[in-house]
Write a protein that binds this DNA or RNA. Sequence first.
RNA 1: GCACUUGUAGCUCAAUUGGAUAGAGCACCUGACUACGGAUCAGGAGGUUAGGGGUUCGACUCCCUUCAAGUGCACCA
Length: 588
Amino acid sequence: MKFIFDAVIKAVKELYGTDIDLAIINIQETRKEFVGQVTLVTFPLIKFSKKSPEQTGNEIGEYFANNLTEIAGFNVVKGFLNLSLTDSFWTNKLFNEILDPKFAQFKLNGKKVMVEYSSPNTNKPLHLGHIRNNLLGFSVAEILAAAGYEVVKTNLVNDRGIHICKSMLAWQKFGNGETPNSSGLKGDHLVGKYYVLFDKEYKKQIEALIAAGNSEEESKKNAPLIIEAQEMLLKWEAGDPDVISLWKTMNSWVYEGFTETYKTLGVNFDKFYFESGTYLLGKDIIEEGLQKGVFFKKEDSSVWIDLTDEGLDQKLLLRSDGTSVYMTQDLGTAQLKYNDFHMDKSIYVVGNEQDYHFKVLFTILKKLGKEGAAGLFHLSYGMVDLPSGKMKSREGTVVDADDLMNEMQQTARVHTENLGKINDFADEEKMELYHTIGLGALKYFLLKVDPKKRLLFDPNESVDFQGHTGPFIQYTHARIRSVLNRVDVVPTEYVYNEKLDSEERDLIVALSNYPEVIQTAAEGYSPAIIANYVYDLAKIYNKFYHEKSILQAESDEIKQFRIKLTIASGKVVKHAMNLLGIEVPERM
RNA sequence: GCACUUGUAGCUCAAUUGGAUAGAGCACCUGACUACGGAUCAGGAGGUUAGGGGUUCGACUCCCUUCAAGUGCACCA
């Protein structure tokens, strides 16, 4: 559509004798209640034409009609100049651009971006909130790759700390040597069970202490279990062989479990970082900041940064005893990641409860003049809540990731069996299909919403399979495949002189928007933009499909043309769904 | 208390980043195959965009304010 922008500049120059900036040209898709496909908003131009919006529109429209071969006609409604492009413009678009194998394939832009996501704790299994995180991270990475970035997907695993020791201690005390093998429990679930058990026993001790006359605060601090857990953490930090060995064993169980969950979810990583390997980093940056005068030291020798000029607070960076805090290690880890990859952009997919932390982190890195600091971005997403409120692992009010994915596949099975369209499938094919549809429904449900908005999930109301859903789009694809499977000769003719029907033209217009949609989604780090686009596209295709016969078209020429439209639609639907991490089936 | 985010149809979400009469899905009502797949399509009903003020040719969008919800404000991570 760039030629229209150029034409507007030229038109204004010739009609009104002014050079105008590209930025003030407002071009949009014509709303469907008006005639045309492309609309120029003329309000911003009247200061150059010195005429009414209507008159300006008419003059520019007249100019276009006389000077642009692509323009078939125009109409003006108030300050809107609606342009109709010729049918041959649109058919050329389909033949030369959309059907080209390179359509929507952006060239590498020479920039590297890191997407850090998932970042689980190794003391409990993944839940619905993690699913949102994983899907967002994976999809954003795919979208950025499609837009021409070189992408590195990383996972910073939180594998140490007091919470890990809690699971370990509970297992040691109450586990009787239970293992994933002996119990048949998935490793992460087994470890999670002991994390919950710790909390239960710990609470009992607190209650007993309170009953014995202690204050609540004292009881929480002095309960034997918590003291033992803290001792265990110290031993871990000191490298105690027994503790380290137990830690390694239990973490390996968790990793086995996570690997399985990631596989079912369809996400992957190029590089893992472990907090056990990064938690001591960052002290050299503290030193650097002090030397540069960006940080300051208090009398007790704790180190701070004053960010009150930025509208933030003073922030502690190093304790008075010289040990690090969360921010210290995140500074160090940011540096480590940069040293490893020298990326231009770095995306952190982390929930919005950490908005302040990342604001501070990025500000500090900028103040230190760190390379890559300008490319830092916190992809902050809203929490997933249940109707009953927040999910709490310790209280067992979580929607478990594995359970949920299982249920989705079961639901897909019920739907599919009721329709009875794939009774000839082998069992293995059926299972694969239930997985495709069940996860498609779940992923679409979570990704179609703007990341920053919080998400309400009602486990009692199953995720829909009809309407604005993943399966609707998957169904559209299966139907397209079904039509194309009946075509024996792939059309090779690339001229078309028939008049376009509105359903055909609408479809080409929608398809031609796809590259720009990828670009917008990449710039906004928003899979939701892709999700909403591909739904619209599927709807437009379904309408076309209903109104127009493809295989029984009025003439062979029209039939060939509609087959090509169908091929193009199937291609874009599949590509867009894959950017969301969703597979599309051949049949369903 | 201070800061950040959110508030759109009964419910779940859109709205091309300031453009036309705010659009979809679910649920509800009505219709459409002896036609390429009915997990579909067409239509109906459903709105003071939380309330109020402002900015301008034009505001769901920007500014101020009130209200509601969520999150954050540890020498925790």
